[in-house]
Nucleic acid binder design. Structure first.
Lengths: 314, 314
DNA sequence: ATTTGCTATAGTTTTTATCAATAGTATTTG
DNA sequence: CAAATACTATTGATAAAAACTATAGCAAAT
């Protein structure tokens, strides 16, 4: 049994196809066939059921793949150990960010980070929370930024900052005259929220503490940007809630419609999250330090109240 | 980096000597030299400081060895996964047993176990608790039987049975007239105990709850068998305490000197212990089932009070 | 100065991994 | 139903590597 063989098994298990897996691992397909057969011979079991199309894992194959992942993860961490000792921070690093955080946070730290750690090749991808969870678990992401807590056993969370919610209330709205608002003012049927999969929504739903989980609003929103929400809100379709950092980029005209919550400000916890296997921990640490550093100045609320996404099935 | 290279590194780290490590790994010494150099080149670090005699690990080398052990352990567990699926119970299995348990317990389960699992090659070694802890941690033992709890982070414990202590009180002793004894009757200066390293002693010391940890007895015992204790006791040097299973093998003459404790019987917890890496778990399970089965009949006390060994530095 | 007890290096052999080419085998399609 | 398609397995050749034997090199001990 070699680490290479195990990597081949993982590749085939992932792509359910020898040919594709061969491309991804930069070897020819016969190489994969032979090496995997060799491993199957050595363990004296069948890992793949090649009669199924597409190819499937056998029962024992699933366990083998799990264990293979353990081994390969530990093996990958060896380079980590060396890098840590050398103080080397570099290499490719895949970072996922949820849509409601991406546009505001990324510009704040990207320049600083790449300048500070020029040897790190950051690959950033906008993903939903569910996509992030699944990609962290199968090692397609090294880390991600999302609203927490996620209640995921295999994912570690390190809080970056607590971002307060701000009410966006157009002039015609019943709350428009208030200078400050509070949680009890809110009515779930009156608030425009983002589609499922944007974890921001979870926070808002919890915030409202509405008993109606499937509130019978007359419409359901499926597009995903705050700009849309603001325009709908201006059209008199209700108020909306914006994360604090997003409000900083509004035009003066729109800022007039903002209403802050009284303390303690309801907030979402935004965290850097990563697999408990803790690969590339130095880069994760460097990212954390950079982001926490730049955000520290931008958000200076106190007595923040944390709004948690509801527990999700992974 | 290959698993083989990592095994070579572990062997050299263990024996602090390429030549010996080569013998143990069944290859020639140049093979080790070259493969380890290759790994060092690949990681671009030095694992061993070859200028020291005997050879030493560098700082980074220690971390490499730790990680190598993780990888090799995970790799070894692959066969475990397969064996478990096949229901196969076999192979070499190294079991340690502390001296105060060995002579009474081993005859009770050895025959049954080897009959039930003929493919398992049991290698049993009598070891002190400290030796057992260290050998489990570096994988020289697959499991052991000892008095617990041990408070070892990397060692799992599964209680096999609770063995009550029985007082052995010669006719001349002040307690000889009692039919039953209780904890409060005991005086630490009056009890003959085994040398350090026999975890049995820890239990007894706790039992007495004496404030004098270094009780100024006029003599200290360094020999290690209960037979010696019984003889010394007969000579009028004090009473002693015997584990229940041991008392079953005394001659009738000596059994007359036994005094049982009133309920709840003070006892020691005897457990099957093994590394949290859980290699060879099927054999461990099989051992547990066999031992717990044969002992269940032999010890039928209730309301047992557990006496814990004091926390030890590993 | 010589022996001892190591590890490293050189040169060779054996084993293994990989490749290109192609055969085999289902499944889909004209 | 034959041909094409989309796969995986097999074959035979080649390159890479791991292992061996023999020996050089280098300290510490005698």
């Amino acid at each position: 049994m070699t680490i290479t063989q195990l990597k081949y098994v993982l590749a085939v298990a992932e792509h359910q196809n020898f040919t594709k897996a061969a491309e991804k691992t930069f070897v020819t397909q016969p190489t994969l066939s032979m090496q995997i057969q060799k491993l199957e011979d050595e363990l004296d079991i069948l890992i793949f059921d090649r009669s199924k199309k597409p190819i499937e894992l056998t029962e024992i194959g699933k366990k083998i793949v799990n264990q293979a992942r353990n081994i390969v993860n530990e093996a990958d961490r060896m380079q980590d150990v060396v890098d840590q000792q050398k103080g080397f921070i570099g290499g490719e690093f895949k970072l996922g960010i949820i849509p409601t955080i991406m546009p505001t946070l990324l510009p704040m730290f990207l320049r600083t980070f790449t300048k500070r750690h020029p040897k790190v090749q950051l690959k950033i991808e906008e993903l939903t929370t569910d996509e992030i969870i699944s990609k962290i678990n199968d090692n397609h992401l090294d880390a991600a930024i999302a609203a927490t807590p996620l209640y995921q056993e295999k994912i570690k969370e390190r809080a970056l900052y607590y971002e307060p919610f701000v009410g966006y209330i157009p002039a015609a709205h019943r709350l428009a005259d208030k200078k400050e608002i509070q949680t009890s003012d809110l009515d779930i049927d009156d608030i425009l929220l983002l589609e499922d999969g944007h974890c921001f929504r979870d926070g808002v739903v919890n915030l409202c503490k509405s008993s109606k989980l499937n509130g019978d609003q007359s419409f359901q929103l499926q597009s995903g940007s705050f700009e849309t929400l603001i325009k709908l809100s201006n059209e008199g379709l209700g108020m909306t809630l914006l994360p604090y950092l997003h409000t900083q980029e509004l035009q003066e005209e729109q800022k007039k419609n903002l209403r802050y919550f009284v303390k303690p400000h309801p907030s979402r916890e935004v965290s850097l999250i990563y697999s408990t296997s803790e690969l590339k921990l130095q880069i994760i640490n460097a990212l954390y330090d950079t982001i926490a550093g730049v955000v520290r100045g931008a958000i200076a609320f106190q007595d923040v109240e944390i709004i948690s996404p509801t527990k999700k099935s992974s």
